[in-house]
């Protein structure tokens, strides 16, 4: 338990650091939301000045940070200039959509990578294994963006899948089953892009970790006890190979998240990605900071989940050894 509490504290500390840094970067970046207003002849400099004062942009940075922290504690997460509302409700909806996308992509990617990697490792050196490794390497060379555009093109040409958005028009009127089906159809393209982009790395790591373990003495011993092959692979080898893979899982959440933000923009998935882009272009600074904070929380949650899994998997960590 000490281990997990430590990790949690570490996460909170990191969150604080990220908030300070993103605040600094955004505040120090040239330009502000009010620049465009200033250029507009219809708006008087006095109005702009009043707005500046109202948003607190004329105050020194530490004061603005303190005000922002207070608004975070109130659950508002600052204020969106462009939408003229507290940032929190905007961010929450978008964050939920990003979570749906990243979460299902992570799950699917790992659920596919594990059996393929184990299967290839068990046939190390044979044709199927070489074929798997070769196609993983080839797939690895394809940039994510190209993959997204390619799939998008395919969807446009064939019409098999919707090319954007999260639900169809008239979604609310659908029954539950139809709703699930509609959402799944919209989810397919971005999820497939993310999964195909991540899969090669994961398969390679699963395979390598398994091969290392398959060589070990306790597996030879288990084979000597007549443990059937399938059980040997999944109940003996996989847990033993899991530690580095669990750490990789933590990283993969981060990697998938950043790719996900990009894919969201390309495939117009209403997640944090498009919102962040829009907010950056508009210099809507609290919205930018909020989106960054949400992404950080996801990242940390992924790593924390990895720590929990590590803790659950390895008794040596639980008993405080190593």
């Amino acid at each position: 338990m000490r281990f997990l509490a430590g990790r949690l504290l570490h996460g909170l500390f990191l969150l604080f650091g990220v908030s300070v840094l993103s605040f600094l970067f955004v505040a120090l970046a040239p330009g502000s939301f009010l620049d465009e207003m200033r250029l507009s002849p219809q708006i008087s400099p006095e109005t702009v000045g009043a707005l500046r004062a109202q948003y607190g942009l004329d105050r020194p940075l530490p004061v603005r940070y303190a005000r922002w922290v207070r608004s975070v504690l109130r659950g508002e997460l600052g204020f969106s200039f462009a939408y003229n509302t507290p940032a929190a409700p905007l961010l929450r909806v978008r964050a939920r959509n990003t979570l749906v996308l990243t979460g299902s992509a992570t799950l699917l990617a790992w659920a596919t990578a594990i059996p393929i990697g184990v299967w290839a490792a068990a046939r190390k050196g044979r044709v199927v294994d070489q074929l798997t490794t070769a196609s993983a390497t080839a797939l690895l060379a394809v940039p994510d963006l190209l993959l997204a555009l390619g799939l998008l093109l395919l969807a446009v040409r064939t019409g098999w899948f919707p090319t954007g958005g999260m639900v169809s028009l008239g979604f609310e009127a659908l029954g539950f089953g139809a709703k699930v089906k509609d959402a799944a159809r919209h989810l397919t393209l971005p999820v497939v892009t993310l999964v195909v982009g991540t899969l090669p790395v994961l398969v390679k790591h699963v395979r390598a970790a398994l091969i290392e373990v398959l060589d070990s003495a306790f597996l030879r011993a288990a084979r000597g006890h007549g443990i059937p092959r399938r059980r040997l692979l999944f109940r003996y080898a996989l847990p033993a190979a899991a530690n580095p893979l669990i750490s990789l899982f933590g990283f993969s959440v981060g990697a998938l998240l950043s790719t996900s933000l990009l894919v969201e923009v390309v495939m117009s998935w209403p997640g944090l990605g498009p919102l962040l882009l829009e907010a950056i272009l508009a210099r809507d600074l609290y919205l930018v900071i909020g989106a960054v904070m949400f992404s950080t929380v996801f990242l940390l949650a992924g790593n924390l989940l990895a720590d929990v899994l590590l803790y659950a998997n390895d008794p040596r960590i639980r008993t405080g050894e190593r």
């Binding site: 306790f218 030879r220 000597g224």
Partner: peptide, 18 residues
């Protein structure tokens, strides 16, 4: 393991560590 079983040379590493 059922009819012929083997006690391996290295007891330290012949058991699954987890």
């Amino acid at each position: 393991g059922a009819e012929i079983s083997l006690i391996f040379q290295e007891p330290g590493i012949a058991l699954h560590p987890m």
